[in-house]
C-alpha cells in the first residue's frame, strides 16, 4: 500500500498513468454527458409545477456539487502537501482551483438564469446561491494568494494553509447563511432540494453528475500533466520525452 502511494507520488509515474487513462475517461465522459443531456432535456417529463425551466437543474445541480467537491479535493491535497511535502498533491490542488472556480461560477450563473422564470428576478438572496457566491470568493482568494508569491514553494504552502482554513469555515459559512436566510425570509422556498424527484428525472441527473466528475478528472489530469512537465522541465525523463516526440 505504502509502496504504491510512493510510486504514485513520483511525478514521472503519475504523468504516465494520467497519460494512459485520460483518453478512456474522456470517451466515457463524452458518452455520459451526451446521453445525460438527451435524456434530461428531451426524454424526461416536464415538471408540473415549474414547466420546462426546471431542466436547468441538469447543469446547475452537477456544477453545484462539483464546486464543493473540488474544494474538498483541494483541501485534502493541501493537507497531504503540508504534512508529507508531496509535490504531486500541490500540483493537483493548483490544477483544480480554476476548475472549481469555473464550476462555482457555472452554478451561480445557471442558478440566476433559473431564478428569472421562477422568482421573477435575476438574483435572489437564496441561501444556496449566497453560499455559492461566498465559495467563489474563497476560490478567487486561493488563486490570488498563490499567484502573489514570487517564491512558488512558499506560495504553494500559503495557499494550502488558506485552503485548510477555508474548509473549516465552509460548513460554518453554509449554516450561518442558512440561519440568516430563514431569519430574514421565513417563507422562502428552496426549490433546488426537491424532496422527491421522479426516477425518470433522477437518472439523467445522476448521469450528468458523473459526467461532470469525469469532465473534471480529464481536465485536471491534462492540466496536472502540463504542470508536471513545466516543473520537471530540466530532468532527463522530460528531455527524453521531448526528443522522442521531436520537440
Amino acid at each position: 500500500m505504502f509502496q504504491w502511494f510512493h510510486r504514485l507520488a513520483s511525478l514521472k509515474n503519475f504523468y504516465r498513468l494520467a497519460e494512459i487513462i485520460t483518453p478512456w475517461l474522456a470517451v466515457l465522459c463524452a458518452i455520459l454527458l451526451a446521453v445525460g443531456l438527451y435524456r434530461g432535456l428531451v426524454v424526461a417529463p416536464t415538471d408540473y409545477e415549474q414547466g420546462e425551466s426546471y431542466r436547468i437543474i441538469y447543469v446547475h445541480v452537477p456544477s453545484a456539487w462539483m464546486s464543493m467537491f473540488v474544494y474538498m479535493v483541494i483541501a485534502f491535497c493541501s493537507a497531504i502537501y503540508l504534512v508529507w511535502n508531496m509535490k504531486l498533491a500541490d500540483i493537483v490542488a493548483q490544477a483544480s482551483a480554476p476548475m472549481g472556480a469555473a464550476f462555482t461560477f457555472l452554478a451561480l450563473a445557471t442558478g440566476s438564469l433559473w431564478g428569472k422564470p421562477m422568482w421573477g428576478t435575476w438574483w435572489e438572496w437564496d441561501a444556496r446561491l449566497t453560499s455559492e457566491l461566498i465559495l467563489l470568493f474563497l476560490y478567487i482568494g486561493y488563486m490570488a494568494l498563490r499567484g502573489a508569491f514570487e517564491n512558488s514553494a512558499a506560495g504553494a504552502k500559503a495557499a494550502a494553509i488558506l485552503a485548510l482554513v477555508g474548509v473549516v469555515n465552509i460548513p460554518i459559512i453554509h449554516y450561518s447563511v442558512e440561519w440568516w436566510n430563514t431569519l430574514h425570509q421565513p417563507a422562502s422556498i428552496t426549490k433546488f432540494d426537491t424532496p422527491s424527484i421522479h426516477i425518470s428525472m433522477l437518472i439523467p441527473l445522476l448521469m450528468m453528475a458523473l459526467g461532470f466528475k469525469l469532465f473534471y478528472l480529464v481536465n485536471m489530469f491534462s492540466r496536472t500533466r502540463s504542470m508536471i512537465l513545466e516543473r520537471e522541465a530540466s530532468t532527463s525523463w522530460v528531455r527524453n520525452r521531448a526528443q522522442e516526440n521531436n520537440l
Binding site: F137, A144, V165, N169, I173, S176, V177
Partner: peptide
C-alpha cells in the same frame, strides 16, 4: 489581497 482572503471568512 488581505481583504480578499479575510472578508469571506468574516461572514
Amino acid at each position: 489581497l488581505l481583504a480578499l482572503l479575510v472578508l469571506p471568512l468574516f461572514i
